[in-house]
Write a protein that binds this DNA or RNA. Structure first.
Lengths: 350, 350
DNA sequence: TCTCAAAACTGAAACGTTACAGGTAAAATG
DNA sequence: CATTTTACCTGTAACGTTTCAGTTTTGAGA
């Protein structure tokens, strides 16, 4: 009926509306689909002038490669999966991370798929799903353990990933971490400088890597600066806030109550402070508190708290960049970074 | 050369590893690919026994339809896009919303793609991108304006969406909203009951729908309960916190300072309280504050604040459910909901 | 016994892309 | 002038799915 070989109503159909495809551009330029595809990829066997022409038309049509086509043909999903635990710290952690990641992904073909899950149940579920369905080119995980089953599995199965936190299992992989050891060490120093000697540490749950790091920093600090530890019982940064508050009140009323407290998490600090004030203690007078926070809010409430900011947004950026590089084959040992603590300007002056 | 007609090493290849496809199941059952496809869809022209057999093998293989294949063939992406403004409220709003949405999406084929953008620049960009690339089956947006260009565009182009907030432009669409009018109305009532008469409202930016709602509730409350307004100048819930604080301090030192303040946002309240205390005022004595919050944290800091919780997680659930229903063709007028304010148990007793 | 309809199943084509294995014409080589 | 390169370009097949238009088989009806 018409110039067969090519599908029938192509020109008409494409000229009207519809999303442009390689076929559209091929039709408009009079070239073959293959040529157009290769031209847009800047392949060496396509003439310079042809490439120019193809690019021009592609731009003008606003051509965007069809993701499903690419994915089906090549297996490349152009998706980064962010695996979130449902009990991640409340105060802005997740949103900061998401924003940081997307900031970097914004200039690329990657989309960000967020996959939350209940950590208590089984942290492997989302990772296995991604592995089984091939639904992402790379994965970002947090809440890392020293010996992390997810890290092992993804390494075995060759799925690129980046971790927010370090492991200690002889596997070299991309990560970004906060230097919690150094943070706690400096915190001890700060408290001792203020004349505090009996210090408590509100640490993370012990299964996580950063528990170890903060303990190491703590013990090194106690030794170096000469102070003693007041134990926090079973209270961690993830204990329900009312329990934390109750424990803090009891602790501060007790005989050997601490005169300095270091907290690893902003929300726990709120409960902590509520507890110690309920016990009649005064911040900056009877006791000093140092806290890390992922959003600048503690000093609005209590200017007396010494605060250190964790730039989670920056962490998101680092993780996204590292992961993309890993996907592109960069060696993992080149994709590791550790952020140093930064003391907030809102805290006390000294 | 083996049993040609079918691709060569299929049985072998699939038995070993590789992801199972319809072809795998077809090979194992001895059926055609089409039959398998239709059997899994429970089509009426497939025998009951055959369906059973196919389902059994599919389950056993852990078959999951290839998303790229489906998407290429049908255009269905099985993706929900969440369009976030980069300057969304800090305190947990984003993460709550994300978790709420994923909770619902968890049981479905849908994936959640998060697409942040700088609202100040151009809120249309992400919507246009999704429209142009067909990269999602539905969209969730927030920060809704009474006359919202995104709503208009998506309606025109027939892209299903749900909004976190209402519009007022004669378009019926799925939404979930918080009853800010009622919240502010009740807040005025509460303050008047406490004997407060000169009330200030820290409202959202005026371009947003919920500005109007809170103003209406405010004015209705003032009239009904007999109080007068103290204006907040140009301060809104999005003003940088230090400016809010400075303004609050100045305001509270001035002649006609308010004895009651209503705040629409938890983070703004922090700055507000810091300001009024800097002016020497005492919460619950010189002035009462009522605040909405999306995470229960204000009363840890100041038990004297009257707080109302907005369950953003629930909002996420509602939005996800509404959007999926809309995608399935349910009429938009059936997919609208408004959450009522709930007074926190942590606030003052009366 | 023959015809027809219903029930059950199936191959081909298409969605948009890329890898592969050519193809063609012009230019360089002998 | 014949032959080989070189530079550019192209058709086919395949990724996994669904739709369409059948085909085969079975059994009922005449």
């Amino acid at each position: 009926m018409d110039d067969s070989g090519r599908p029938r109503t192509l020109g008409a159909r494409d000229a009207v509306r519809e999303r442009p495809t390689l076929k559209t551009i091929a039709y408009m330029t009079g070239l073959g689909i293959t040529t157009v595809s290769r031209a847009l990829k800047d392949a060496p066997d396509i003439g310079a002038e042809t490439k120019e022409r193809v690019r021009l038309i592609a731009n003008q049509l606003g051509y965007q490669p069809n993701r499903a086509g690419v994915r089906l043909r090549t297996g490349k999903t152009n998706v980064i999966a962010l695996v979130l635990s449902i009990d991640e710290e409340l105060m802005g952690f997740t949103s900061q991370l998401v924003h940081g990641i997307s900031e970097v992904l914004g200039g690329t073909q990657y989309h960000l798929v967020v996959t939350p899950h209940s950590f208590e149940k089984d942290p492997m579920v989302p990772v296995r799903y991604i592995l089984d369905t091939g639904s992402a080119d790379g994965v970002i995980i947090s809440r890392i353990e020293p010996d992390d089953a997810r890290v092992r599995l993804m390494t075995e199965r060759n799925l690129p990933f980046a971790t927010h936190g370090r492991t200690d299992m002889g596997i070299v992989h991309p990560f970004h971490d906060y230097d919690n050891e150094n943070y706690v060490y400096q915190a001890v120093q700060k408290l001792v400088q203020k004349g505090r000697k009996r210090i408590a540490l509100l640490a993370p749950q012990s299964r996580f890597s950063f528990y170890i790091h903060s303990r190491i920093g703590f013990e090194r600090g106690l030794a170096d600066f000469g102070a003693t530890e007041v134990p926090m019982g079973r209270v961690t940064s993830e204990t329900p806030l009312d329990e934390t508050r109750a424990y803090a009140e009891r602790l501060m009323r007790s005989a050997g109550s601490p005169d300095g407290i270091i907290s690893i998490s902003g929300s726990a600090t709120i409960a902590l402070v509520a507890g110690l004030e309920a016990a009649g203690k005064k911040l900056g007078v009877d006791v000093d508190v140092v806290s890390k926070q992922s959003a600048e809010f503690l000093n609005w409430i209590r200017p007396e708290i010494y605060t250190v900011n964790e730039d989670v947004r920056q962490a998101g950026r680092e993780l996204a960049k590292a992961l993309m590089a890993r996907i592109d084959g960069v060696a993992p040992e080149l994709l590791q970074s550790i952020a140093q603590p930064v003391w907030s300007k809102m805290g006390p002056k000294d």
